[in-house]
Design a protein around this nucleic acid. Structure first.
Lengths: 104, 104
DNA sequence: ACTATCGTCAACAAATAGCTTACATTGGCC
DNA sequence: GGCCAATGTAAGCTATTTGTTGACGATAGT
């Protein structure tokens, strides 16, 4: 028996909004309204992200990357993992076969 | 002088459609119309992806992952890299400062 | 009492994913 | 030549979704 590098995740990857809400923003000591202003997005939009109702779009990701000094990549990757997981849950791919490179 | 792990990419990351068009689909020996059918998406949609006009959405990523036996992750990551790079090119973040964790 | 922040809701604008239908072109194959 | 399948693109449409503004009540600080 061998261990395959499974990419089945039992649990949902955390939405980037959680990281922002729980860790990153508190660490700055700034108000959320102020953060929204610095990011150049509406206050409502930030709250939607923090509430995990809206995704971190590429546009927002680069803004977060600039504001917090890490790159956009962190935020992009978190969001991509989140999106992919949910797509895997919701999409019915049972009708799609797995094909191999052609024989000939 | 030290080398920082730069994430500045001079060149645009390749759109996943290119990989599909140049390598993956040819290796199967199937027609593109057939591939579209197997994926459960419209022929037009596949051509838009191959022509780099439409992105590989999470939904399409899991379909590709199933059809070709690799996971959705490959396609998701390629698309994310592509999207992020373009966002970095187009977004003006010059007005956004970089802040640090609070002093107090 | 006043003010700022908080968290949410509603309505709207803009962009986008994905579909159908249609068209012209190419390349077998009989 | 005639026929058919595959190719590549375009136009138009729908549904969804990102992001906005404006408003509302609640809470806390001064």
């Amino acid at each position: 028996m061998t261990f395959v590098a499974r990419r089945n995740r039992a649990r949902c990857p955390t939405h980037p909004g959680v990281l922002l809400r729980e860790d990153v923003i508190p660490a700055t000591g700034r108000t959320k309204s102020e953060i929204a202003g610095l990011l150049g997005i509406s206050r409502q939009h930030l709250y939607d992200i923090l509430g995990e109702r809206k995704p971190v779009s590429p546009s927002v990701a680069v803004r977060l990357g600039k504001l917090f000094g890490d790159g956009a990549g962190v935020w992009t990757r978190m969001q991509a993992a989140y999106d992919t997981w949910h797509a895997e849950q919701n999409e019915d791919v049972s009708g799609i076969p797995t094909i191999r490179a052609k024989a000939a």
